[in-house]
Nucleic acid binder design. Structure first.
Length: 561
RNA sequence: CGGGGUGUAGCGCAGCCCGGUUAGCGCGCUUCGUUCGGGACGAAGAGGUCGGGAGUUCGAAUCUCCCCACCCCGACCA
């Protein structure tokens, strides 16, 4: 491809609206342009990369017996009513104004629609159906460029099986295929285990990439590979040790002391001697949540323990429930359910609120004074805490979800009446799995992981072109002649070549080449042509080789391997 | 949806507080000439509903009100 004719609008300056590296670089390299918030057009260069990722996905999906579909983006709303997901998605679901259609945010319903009444026999299964399609979600807040958009490209696959054992197999095939896909793309990822979530089902894994642009927080153990969403992650952490002697409960006057920090300062104690109280309303009933010192409650853990609806109590409610204002609430004398974090298990000599405004108790012995207390893991793990599996230090960081594999079970087949007959002629709902990969996220994540201050550093697998050929001075006949012949020769050999044949300064071309980041650059200039040589530069390592014009292809092949 | 911010040429910005010529600057773009291995130089040009609407005023990019778009933080997130 000749750059003089190719639509690659590169940007020298950093666009104002972009913050994360991949977003900045995708704009600067002319891979994408924004049309509207969270809606991006892929330009020719960017689309080449999308196609490369898609092709890898396609190959690996086909290798596990997947069959590619191309489903519509539009679908009648009533099909989503069948599974109750119009309500479940709520405002996320785009609805068409002048006809009762929605823009599909995912395709479980549509695939199930095609399966029902067609896959009627156990003999028809297993099946793996997939597609690479645009999804539409009315995200309240699109961000980070292509990483969270209102419209994005997703590979979604669905498996149909007759038993949970067979589902496990289909699931396992996807797990392997996904690892191959991300390995081939050259992405550093890790796998986070089940957090079954609102989708229902029996198991799931998320394929994650560490990135500050990510929206999930995970705990990860480099040593053993343990990885879990912060919402469920556990760690080895000491419980507060029980003192040998429990002192008596004593009431302390603590005027205007509201926070744990203030309490510690006022009494000159350490925060590990205190228990913080939070009151929530769980399905209309108050619950006191006790944490050691200043530790924050992990909302997800709390909600899964309490089940049902959980919300913080209003300030007026607090007085009514506990008799005290926020800051003076504690376990002793609290007349409702009390749950405490495990670190407080059987602790004594604690300071906490006295349920009387401006008073705290000291010498609290939870074992002695609060017999009805229940203990759970309620805190979020933090970096540096011990891995529960191997004891090494856990790292906590944010991450981007690249893929998700999910054992759906029969949620959709039951709701939509997709049944099959087994060997005995009995009807059962089809057992399904669903498996997604964010294709544009793969591209963005690769760039997040592979760039420097000059631009993108592609590998051969995903690079839009293998070679970036630069003719330094288009006014010199010798340079043009040699560049043209190298260009044809490499194309003949099956390489993808981007040829910078523009009338421009050398520095301009070098910088564009580094920005666009093809793995290998070939520089054709007067200076080295005098010795019948051209320069090859490896983008990643910045290594340079002077190569005889007649040996270019061999050296290119060697360097690209 | 809550908090903060921005909107002026393709891109990056100044001007606005304190209303008053023809709305500027850098990059990019067009033409000509010079230059040609790390974002060149000279000369001449083109390019603007100052986000939109209403208002105040003799006069609005500038003041007031409403709306819209976009960004950041939070909430939300199959």
């Amino acid at each position: 491809m000749k750059l003089s004719k190719y639509f690659v609008p590169t940007l020298k300056e950093v666009p104002n609206d972009a913050v994360v590296a991949s977003h900045v670089l995708m704009l600067r390299t002319g891979m994408v342009r924004m049309l509207s918030a969270g809606i991006y057009s892929f330009l020719p260069l960017g689309y080449r990369v999308i196609k490369k990722v898609s092709e890898i996905i396609r190959e690996e999906m086909d290798a596990i017996g997947g069959q590619e579909f191309h489903l519509p983006g539009l679908s009648p709303r009533e099909i989503w009513e069948e599974t109750g997901r119009v309500e479940a998605f709520g405002d996320i679901l785009f609805q068409i104004k002048n006809r009762d259609y929605v823009l599909a945010p995912t395709h479980e319903e549509i695939m199930t629609y095609h399966a029902r009444n067609v896959m009627k026999s156990y003999k028809d299964m297993p099946q793996i159906w997939y597609q690479i399609q645009t999804k539409f979600r009315n995200e309240p807040r699109p961000r980070s460029g292509v990483i969270r958009g209102r419209q994005f490209l997703m590979k979604d696959a669905y498996s149909f099986d007759t038993s949970y054992e067979n589902l496990d197999q289909s699931y396992g095939l996807h797990d392997k295929a996904y690892r191959k896909i991300f390995d081939r793309c050259g992405i550093k990822y890790f796998v986070v285990g089940a957090s079954s979530g609102a989708m229902g089902g029996t198991g799931s894994e998320e394929f994650m990439v560490q990135s500050d642009a990510g929206e999930d927080t995970v705990g990860y153990c480099e040593n053993c590979g343990y990885a879990a969403n912060i919402e469920v992650a556990a760690s080895r952490i000491d419980v507060k040790k029980r003192d040998e002697v429990s002192s008596d409960v004593k009431e302390i006057y603590t005027p205007n002391i509201k926070s744990i920090d203030e309490l510690c300062g006022f009494l000159n104690i350490d925060e590990t001697q205190t228990a913080k109280s939070r009151v929530v309303i769980n399905d209309g009933k108050p619950v006191l949540v006790l944490m050691l010192g200043n530790e924050e409650v992990n909302e997800t853990k709390l909600e899964s323990i309490l089940s049902g609806n959980v919300r913080p109590a209003h300030p007026e409610e607090l007085v009514e429930i506990s008799g005290a204002e926020a800051g003076s609430i504690g376990p002793i004398g609290f007349k409702h359910r009390i749950v405490a974090d495990l670190r407080l298990k059987d602790a004594n000599n604690l300071f906490s609120g006295a349920n009387k405004t401006d008073y705290h108790f000291g010498g609290i012995d939870l074992l002695r004074d609060v017999p009805s207390i229940e203990y759970y893991d309620l805190r979020s793990v933090q970096s540096g805490e011990g891995c529960t599996r191997c004891g090494s230090n856990l790292a906590v960081f944010s991450a981007i979800e690249l893929g998700h594999i999910f054992k759906l079970g029969t949620k959709y087949s039951e709701a939509m009446g997709a049944n099959f007959l087994d060997e005995n002629g009995e009807a059962h709902p089809i057992i399904m799995g669903s498996y997604g990969i964010g294709v544009d996220r793969v591209v963005a994540c690769f760039i997040e992981q592979n760039h420097d201050d000059k631009g993108i550093v592609w590998n051969k697998t995903l690079a839009p072109f293998d070679v970036h050929l630069i003719a330094l001075n288009m006014k010199k006949e010798d340079v043009v002649k040699n560049a043209e012949s190298i260009y044809s020769k490499l194309i003949e050999e099956g390489l993808e070549v981007l040829y910078d044949d523009r009338e421009a300064q050398a520095g301009f071309k070098f910088n564009d080449a580094d920005l666009l980041g093809m793995p290998l650059q070939i520089v054709v200039g007067e200076k080295k042509l005098k010795e019948n040589k051209v320069e090859l530069k490896v983008r990643k390592t910045n290594e340079r080789f002077d190569v005889d014009v007649n040996n270019i292809f061999e050296k290119v092949k060697e360097l690209l391997m």
